[in-house]
Computed example of a mutant assay.
Amino acid sequence: MDPAVVAHRAELVARERSGHTAVVEGTSLYVWGGYVSVADNEVFLPSNEIWLYDLDSGQWEFASMKGEVPPSMSGTCGSTLNGQMFIFGGCCDDGQTNQLYSVNLQDRQFIWRKRKHQAGSPPSPRDKLSCWVYDDRVIYFGGYGHKTLSDLNNSRSFIVDEPSWVEDVFWGWNNEVHVFDPSNDSWSTPDTSGSPPAPRAAHASASVDNKGYVCGGRVMETRASDIFCLDLDTWTWSEIVPASPVPVGRSWHSLTAVSDKSLFLYGGLSVDCKPMSDGWIFDIETKKWKELGHPYKDKPRLWHTACLGKDSDVIVFGGSCNYILQVDTGHCNDALIFQTMPHSLMGLCEDYIGINAGIFQKQLPCLPGKLRKAVEKRTTFFSPGQKPQAV
């Protein structure tokens, strides 16, 4: 790769942002898009750049992107499948979109490709939706968007928020399920059964095995605290009714699968429009929520991203610490790392050596090459020039 394309300096930090996309591939967190506030304006960040955060060293890289570059957007739905990042939907200067793009993250060329569907029909334009990856397909759920009058053939899957009588266009929330198959660039709409969640947007989702989970979100004029499960083999919905206590209703939060039986919920905007910093673990087997203690109680976040790192750590990046519909100035660019499970013995040893690098200066050159590089990265993470944020 052209060395001019990628910059990697300790002082580089991704710009603050909200409504962005972030995914983890290998040992890097990739951050794309979103917006910031400049004076009284919302400004979308450049779509021809991507930021890489090394999960071991805590250092940032910046990379330029090329190809069929998507418009600058916020509210897109991002995912990774077979080394590629897919983004669908979102809101740009021209309004909401239903275009889908992909980029290979493994070859480090960062060339965008606009996916033109060969079969089926894509969902209607929307943003603030979510997705699951299962069986080499990307499955999209919900969101806020617009439909024409002729598209409103099932009122149960779309709740009208605001009509535009002049153009026969209706904005609102949906609970639709759409499937994209990258192998043949096809869209399909499965027939679901059971008890589906109400149409919503700005919710959170996560998947474990063949189950997709949806939690909370904006449901018409309120913010929900419910949790639903979709069997991705049978397309059957079921509502999970957990025992008390349960998190308060919220939107713009995150939900991350941290094991084969637990999900981690963080932050969001509460029913009374309060930015939150609480963290919760949901046990899928017992159907119980448990609040997780952490050192970031003074760092509320909403419209952030949360990705799974190694040892079940969750990396929360960006978002806003204010109610962005009223005071849109609190965008953030710090990476908060939540430890949701005990670390491995190897991880504990690497961290201990990294924190106490001065004690082990003579011993480090004696380590095997691969282990030495891993320890050197952790040393960088805990160095005085870095701000260690691991719990």
Rank of each mutant, 00 (worst) to 15 (best):
T234N: 14
K274I: 15
R250I: 03
T236S: 14
H253G: 00
Y352M: 05
D260G: 15
P275G: 07
S259I: 04
P342W: 07
Y352S: 04
A257Y: 03
M341D: 11
S344R: 00
K299E: 15
L308K: 15
N322G: 11
P247C: 15
E239Y: 03
L345K: 11
H343V: 09
W289V: 05
E239W: 03
R301Y: 13
F282R: 02
E285C: 08
I324G: 01
I353G: 12
W235F: 14
I315E: 02
D311I: 01
K274G: 08
D313E: 05
S259F: 00
T286N: 08
W235M: 12
N322M: 10
I324A: 08
T286L: 04
P275D: 02
P245I: 13
M346G: 00
G330Y: 14
W280H: 06
H253R: 02
A243R: 10
S312L: 09
Y266K: 05
S254N: 07
P300K: 14
V258T: 09
L325A: 09
D298E: 14
S312K: 06
Y323H: 14
A306D: 02
W235A: 05
W303H: 04
G268C: 09
I315N: 06
L348E: 08
P295G: 05
D311H: 08
G293N: 11
Q326V: 15
D311S: 07
D283M: 08
L232C: 14
L302S: 03
G279W: 01
T256S: 03
W303N: 01
I284N: 05
I353T: 05
K287P: 00
V314H: 07
M341P: 06
L232F: 13
I337H: 03
A335N: 08
V316W: 00
C273P: 04
D231C: 07
G267C: 11
F317T: 13
L232Y: 12
Y296E: 03
D260P: 07
K310G: 05
G330E: 09
A243Y: 03
L325K: 10
L345C: 12
L292S: 11
D231Q: 13
L263H: 01
K261P: 06
T256N: 01
T236C: 14
E285G: 03
C321Q: 10
W237L: 01
M276E: 11
S244L: 11
L336K: 10
G330Q: 07
D298M: 15
I337K: 04
V327Y: 11
K299N: 15
A257S: 09
R301K: 15
D334A: 07
